[in-house]
């Protein structure tokens, strides 16, 4: 795993991608620090990462797009998967290298509030808790990007899909509020979602029976809930969209709350997508 990690790190900085990523994050942080803290005189540095989070929409797909997709396109995945490393070690090695590159500009940016605190009062607790949440948000998005990189052989396709997925997460709260809040609408929404999930199951397992049983259980359960305890569905669509809206969760930190639940959600989501990536790699090899 250490070998993969070092090779990836070298590869990022021997090429342009690592430097572009660093420049993009540092430039965004620099602009917001100048505008908010220096020009407008805000003492709350946490506003900088909160406002800068949109940069992830572009930076993360750039960072992760070539990670696994390019290995497949160049057939170098044959080297990795025929070596004495497991798929998990390969994926985790690559993920850690991405996370390290993500951490580098953030560590540099953490110096800004320290410098500013020498010239006035800066709320360092809120600042660093927001920076931690910002980093963990980046970890979640990196895991999502890596997952889409594992699904494609073309790095640009992988970047485009990652961008769409991140954009969906970015606007998830707004999208959720646009949908009808009625119980019937929630029932139809989750029915469609269940059918999509079953279709995915069928594609992955190529097993009609398993897909049929899953569809029966999901749709049957949903129908029973709708008929007998419909209140469960009340507001559930907005809640579902809210759980996807990982960007919006950063707000609580810039409000001065160290929200452990959100931090745990970030860690869990990052782990979940790394797990999905390992499974996607394994599935491709074993199918």
């Amino acid at each position: 795993m250490a070998g993969i990690y070092k090779k990836e790190m070298r590869s990022y900085f021997r090429g342009l991608m690592g430097w572009v990523f660093l420049a993009l994050i540092l430039l965004t942080f620099g602009i917001y620090t100048s505008v908010l803290c220096l020009s407008k005189g805000f003492a709350d540095f946490s506003l900088v990462p909160y406002n800068a989070q949109f940069v992830f929409l572009i930076a993360i797909p750039l960072l992760t797009m070539r990670s696994l997709a390019e290995e497949r396109r160049q057939h170098t995945d044959q080297l990795l998967y025929s070596s004495s490393l497991s798929s998990a070690e390969i994926v985790i090695g690559k993920y850690l290298s991405c996370v390290t590159i993500l951490a580098l500009p953030l560590v540099i940016s953490c110096l800004y509030p320290l410098v500013l605190s020498g010239h006035g009062r800066v709320v360092l607790e809120t600042t660093f808790s927001t920076m931690l949440a910002f980093f963990l948000l980046g970890c979640v998005l990196t895991a999502i990007g890596l997952f889409f990189s594992a699904l494609s052989t073309n790095q640009f396709v992988s970047a485009a899909i990652s961008f769409c997925a991140l954009l969906f997460c970015y606007f998830a709260n707004d999208l959720g509020s646009l949908l009808s809040t009625s119980i019937a609408a929630a029932f139809y929404f989750f029915s469609v979602l269940a059918i999509a999930a079953v279709a995915l199951l069928r594609v992955m397992t190529k097993n009609w029976l398993a897909a049929g049983v899953a569809l029966l259980i999901l749709e049957g359960g949903l129908l029973l809930i709708y008929l007998f305890v419909p209140t469960i569905l009340d507001g559930s669509v907005a809640a579902a969209f809210g759980s996807i809206a990982v960007f919006a969760k950063l707000e609580t930190f810039s409000n001065g709350i160290l929200n452990i639940t959100v931090l745990l959600q970030y860690v869990s989501l990052a782990w979940l997508f790394v797990f999905f990536t390992i499974q996607a790699v394994e599935k491709r090899r074993w199918s």
């Binding site: 590869s11 090429g15 160049q74 057939h75 990795l80 025929s82 004495s84 497991s86």
Partner: peptide, 19 residues
């Protein structure tokens, strides 16, 4: 992992990193 430790493989297209 144990099996691959005892095996050297050169595929039809050598998996090389050009950089």
């Amino acid at each position: 992992l144990e099996a691959k430790r005892h095996l050297g493989y050169m595929p039809e297209v050598p998996p090389l990193y050009s950089e």
